[in-house]
Computed example of a mutant assay.
Amino acid sequence: MSDVRPPRSLRLSRAIAAAQAPVLLAQGRQLRRDTPRLPDAPLPWSGTVEPSVPDVEGRASRPLHLLVIGDSTAAGVGVDHADLGLGGRLAEALARRTARPVHWRAAGRNGATAGDLVKHFAAPALDEPTDLVFLTVGANDALALRSTRAFRRDVRRLIELTFSEHPQAALLMSSLPAFFRFTLLPDPLKRSLYRHSQALESEARTLVDAHPRAHMSPPPPPYTDGFFASDDFHPSALGYQDWAEFAVDDAFSVGFDRLLGDA
């Protein structure tokens, strides 16, 4: 665990946003008026992906149980079938890398913060068999300018809930969106939102890095053409695929697959 404090601009991200509040609020209202509101992917948010090549070590009969928990990205906003959303795409990437079937399910809500996940979704979702939790949260905490202290508390609680219910599970947490690359966001809203998201991410990364069975993805690479859905905010089917492959490839590059071997 690192004891290095984040840069001062991140520690003061809420104060800087408060000073810009009149402009930011006006830009936020305009953005909500102009941006189409896409629906969640239709239910069910669950499925099974079979490996295309069996595992030569004989593990193919032992499926991995994947839980994706989070906000609109867990809900599959941006695609018209949950298999094309984050849960289904992560299952595809995991089945390909592990040569094991992946039973996946998603829980959460469009607009959910980390606090919402703690209060309403984590406990019931973790009641089911779980080998790997993929946590995708923080964008709405940044949009709501939640404090780093509150976000850290909620992420800590999500980690605690995961491992108290499933001590041999593994947890992957996504980095927060690179808001500075979102073309629909005007300045200074874009800069302010990205600054605060990085302050939140710094807090979460410290917690995740401290746990031996958890890993947080690095900041994402530049978004490819076609990454975004029609609202220019949520991922498309291609975007979810890019995201899932990036997250799984990174996790396996640091030996995360050894943790899945326990499952």
Rank of each mutant, 00 (worst) to 15 (best):
G85V: 03
A26Y: 08
G88M: 02
G138A: 03
M1I: 06
L200G: 08
L193W: 11
F179A: 12
R149C: 10
K190Y: 11
G58V: 04
G255P: 14
A95E: 00
L94Q: 01
P177C: 11
L193I: 07
D83K: 14
A15Q: 15
Q27N: 08
L172D: 03
S175A: 14
Q241L: 03
A15K: 13
H215A: 13
P218H: 14
G76A: 05
A210R: 15
E201S: 11
R62A: 14
F233I: 08
R59Y: 02
P219L: 14
L176D: 10
A237L: 05
A15E: 14
D55I: 00
P167N: 02
D83E: 15
L259I: 03
A93N: 01
S164T: 13
S192T: 11
T113M: 06
L94S: 07
V4M: 07
R33L: 04
L260P: 09
T113Y: 07
Q30W: 12
A169S: 15
P124A: 01
T183C: 09
P42G: 12
F246N: 11
H196D: 07
M173S: 13
E165R: 15
R89N: 02
S46H: 05
S72T: 05
M173V: 07
E50A: 06
L259F: 09
F252P: 01
